[in-house]
Design a protein around this nucleic acid. Sequence first.
DNA 1: GTTACATCTGCAAGCGCTTACAGAATGGAT
DNA 2: ATCCATTCTGTAAGCGCTTGCAGATGTAAC
Lengths: 343, 343
Amino acid sequence: MASSHEERRITLEDVAREANVSTASVSRVVNNKGYVSEEVRNRVMAALVRTGYVINRQARGLASGKSQVIGLVVPELETSYFGEIIRGIDEELVAVGYDLMLYTTHHRKQRESAHVATLTAGLADGLLLVLPQDPGAYLESFRRRRFPYVLIDHGGIDETGPSVGATNLQGALDGTDYLIQLGHRRIGFITGKMHMGCAVDRLAGYRQALEAAGIPYDPELVLEGDFHQPLGYQQACRLLSLSHRPTAIFASNDAMGFGVMEAVRDSGLRIGHDISILGFDNVPAASMVHPPLTTVRQPLTEMGRAATRMLLQRIAAPDTPVERIDLPTELVVRESCRMIAGP
Amino acid sequence: MASSHEERRITLEDVAREANVSTASVSRVVNNKGYVSEEVRNRVMAALVRTGYVINRQARGLASGKSQVIGLVVPELETSYFGEIIRGIDEELVAVGYDLMLYTTHHRKQRESAHVATLTAGLADGLLLVLPQDPGAYLESFRRRRFPYVLIDHGGIDETGPSVGATNLQGALDGTDYLIQLGHRRIGFITGKMHMGCAVDRLAGYRQALEAAGIPYDPELVLEGDFHQPLGYQQACRLLSLSHRPTAIFASNDAMGFGVMEAVRDSGLRIGHDISILGFDNVPAASMVHPPLTTVRQPLTEMGRAATRMLLQRIAAPDTPVERIDLPTELVVRESCRMIAGP
DNA sequence: GTTACATCTGCAAGCGCTTACAGAATGGAT
DNA sequence: ATCCATTCTGTAAGCGCTTGCAGATGTAAC
């Protein structure tokens, strides 16, 4: 037995009737656009309050062609990496009254494309793509339809679209350089997933720093990782078992850095004293582990903010010239790296 | 100069024309409901593919009164706590083709209410509220309008609505009991924000365990925290400086537990050996710190999943009897707690 | 008193879809 | 041959909003 008081939705028409004006006028008041006399405005305002009207965004979206929603496509949410980016996005969006539609692809390309399709078909006014996996599939279509989008941490995948990233190469260069300053000459390096631009850039930074310091590149010291802790642990074990083992290990992200710490500890060596460890990202946990992990900070929240501002700008004016921003990384010195012990 | 090839959206009508049928038939094929002959179905399918039609969700939502969107309101995204819950939600939602609208309140009640208002006015078919701050403001209205919702980690705030939580009391009881088994009698306790139900429950669990073991409750050992690391650190310092200091400290969540670890280390004591430390939540970082933190796991992903299933059920049948589920917590023994050292 | 212009208001036509409803066609059962 | 049930298809009326347009009014300039 349904309750007798099934409340009907309050529509613009109800408000119009209540205020004794047309729906057009109510709409003008609600959106604060177009000519409305002081008198009518007051009557409508009162009616709005009295009826408790709440706009139906779907209807407005359909009628106006603008949804005030932006879509966000991320590969996952497990790491705080994404949480921090989203925080930046959210901060900007709230300020302008946009809403956020969240899609997680779990690294499956097909889902990425499917999500992108519905989103761009009227659901969202613009798209933010974090770490896109398969952008080729739709970027061309965006451009053709002039659909606003911005890539975050694109990693050089799309060379022509608007994007926000970090100075991964410079960050890795700075980090490696720091280790060199501390006297290290044999520096192990664990890469990220090499199909991702940021992983490639970080490796490049490492190599450039070595080269600049005149240290020969030793392929034995560079192992491929996947940005996850377990593989960081394994690869660190391999590095530690080298006959001429490294005195420092640079992990391409913090998660793998934690794996390295574990491996070093398991092998009976002291972190910092015997082996220096450097991470990348500066996730919150980096300051919680012991010893606190020295790392290269990536300004994730700022990246989210910058990308959102860029997107909003492009929604307002789709012909804004394409911008590509790389925000600066920053070395965060903690306690996992030390001057190399005497020879 | 706008490009000359501004592509127009493909609508149902375009497909209908292409397939030489009415829009009604196309709609029936697209939604796979109602009678359609094999022949028409094939023609439409072909036209669908040929035109590259993508449905406009706004229009469908407006026409059908169902948006296939569920709204998620969370206080923040900084901690992985929320990421894990969202993961569970996402898993369930993908399976049924629903989309997720994400709202972050940043702990501001007013924003919570505002978001809730738009969401329930046609934008979403149902709402998931995580750690709601001010549910009184709208729960009554939901019930009146029979709008589907489910609370996650409600903490006893809404005693009558559908909800999913964890056995916080039992978890804290188990944790405390474990410490008692290890021989600890003076157990410090740092609470969460006491206006939150889960914080209250955890404290209650602590007290019950003491009582059951016949250990008198010492208010000196119980300090109020806020679920964040810095205050965890401070309160731990206070506990450590007590004339008769505790041999174990139970922090109401892992973040504060990390603060406690820091404080213990700073005071020159050894974690585990001199002071046992117990956390709550089992966030990923708990296994990364050193020594790995013993903690009470909260099944966050499962909670997200359970809540979503419950919500979908209520959307399908709003009169489903109200369910209230508390998923079991589980003690995760690592290395931060040890048998008490000899007297 | 015209004219020109800005201000105001309502009418009504959509936006792209769903879904009664009605009518047509088909196939038994009688 | 008649009837009914079932399957199929199209017509058209919305869903709740925005917005172009036209008409009405007010005001300043001539």
